[in-house]
């Protein structure tokens, strides 16, 4: 049920219920607040990055009810009653034995699939979504289906290697340093 709360100096506010990384959040937001800004500025979840704010780079990729989407193009008010997983919650989806990381997080380190690290949370969330979708069956298909995530440092081939390895083997591989 959509609830509009009292207008304040912040404008018209709407009550929105979100499950973020498994935890319920009951927040009041104005309709012009994006999910990305709510996460970063409102809830302090700065792991989700703002790279363009227009759906052109994928840095803000989160999982909405398990599907990868660009958080910058979602108004938070439209996400009422939905479940969101951000990079902060990815590890708990599938913790590995050591270190408590998701196999993709481990594989990204093993393959040096990042440099500055700014696109990395979006890349990893995107890869989680890619694997769940089940439409990539080759490294070329991984490259195509990871093309919604820009990496200006140019770590693409390492990203493709990391994602393909987890997709194929289910783990980061040899691990270690």
């Amino acid at each position: 049920m959509l609830q509009r709360t009292d207008a304040s100096q912040r404008g018209e506010l709407y009550r929105v219920k979100l499950a973020i990384n498994g935890a319920p959040h009951d927040v009041e937001v104005a309709p012009w607040v994006t999910l990305l800004d709510l996460l970063r500025e409102g809830l302090g979840l700065t792991g989700t990055k703002k790279g363009c704010d227009h759906g052109q780079c994928g840095a803000c990729t989160v999982l909405l009810d398990g599907m990868r989407v660009n958080a910058c193009l979602l108004l938070a008010v439209t996400c009422d009653d939905r479940a969101i997983t951000t990079i902060e919650g990815v590890a708990s989806l599938e913790p590995t034995a050591g270190g408590g990381l998701h196999p993709l997080q481990d594989a990204f380190m093993d393959h040096d699939a990042f440099q500055c690290g700014y696109c990395t949370p979006g890349q990893i969330c995107s890869a989680v979504g890619l694997i769940a979708e089940g439409h990539a069956h080759s490294r070329d298909e991984v490259r195509e289906l990871m093309s919604g995530n820009l990496c200006r440092c140019g770590a693409y081939s390492n990203i493709a290697d990391a994602v393909w390895q987890v997709l194929r083997d289910g783990t980061a591989g040899e691990g270690g340093r």
Partner: peptide, 18 residues
Amino acid sequence: RRVDGPLKVTGRAKYAAE
């Protein structure tokens, strides 16, 4: 492996606007 890797793959590395 990068020593800052664990912070970067978990979203805990903080950038200027964060």
